[in-house]
Computed example of a mutant assay.
Amino acid sequence: MDKYQHRRHNKNLLMVHLIFVTKYRKKILFGNFNNDIKQYIFDACQERHWYIKRMESDKDHIHILLQYNPTDSVKNIVSLLKQKSTYLAWKEYSNMLKKYYWKERTLWSDGYFAASIGMVSQTTIEQYIKNQG
């Protein structure tokens, strides 16, 4: 199977490692709530033709390895995933979440971690470019 995305005017393989942390590092990602949060993120990605290669969580944060389109910025991807998962979580689990976030309808901390990943090392790319022409 081809790992590249084929579009009308490009062929690409853009991947990013994302980490979202729960607000105040509350240890709430477990059981059905954890499974549903992952499903909300998965569904949002599917709607936009982003592909989750791997997603796992600990009690207070979630890791996502995501393949995305060149027309999407990482900042916008993060914003959309956090907003949608927060909205759906509060819609379904408001009684539970009120115990942890009694003043605001929040789920994730304001920041995030993002690192682009490649299928080859920086050294390999530098050597390839150096040997052109």
Rank of each mutant, 00 (worst) to 15 (best):
L97Q: 07
E126L: 11
K82A: 03
L14V: 04
A114V: 01
H6C: 09
S94R: 11
D2L: 12
Y4D: 07
K3E: 05
Y101V: 08
W50R: 06
N34A: 15
Q39V: 10
I77N: 00
Y40T: 04
W50V: 03
A115G: 10
R7C: 10
V78T: 01
Y93Q: 03
N35K: 15
S73F: 05
M96K: 10
A115L: 07
Q122N: 11
Q5V: 12
S73N: 04
T106L: 15
T106W: 13
D60M: 06
M96P: 01
E56N: 15
Y87S: 12
V78W: 01
K11I: 14
I77W: 01
W90K: 06
Y24G: 08
W90G: 02
W102T: 10
I117D: 02
D58C: 15
K98C: 11
L97N: 08
K27S: 12
F42K: 15
M15S: 14
Y51F: 13
M119R: 10
L65A: 11
L13K: 09
K99N: 09
T124I: 12
S94Y: 11
V78E: 00
A114H: 01
N131W: 01
N12D: 13
V16K: 00
D72I: 06
M15Y: 02
I37R: 02
W50D: 02
L18R: 00
N35P: 00
K53V: 11
N10Y: 11
L88I: 08
R105G: 05
K130P: 02
A44F: 03
I117R: 08
K11D: 09
I19V: 15
E104N: 14
Y4N: 12
K98A: 12
T123P: 00
T123M: 08
N95I: 13
W90N: 05
K99H: 11
T86F: 05
Y101G: 06
S121A: 07
A115Y: 04
A44K: 07
H6W: 06
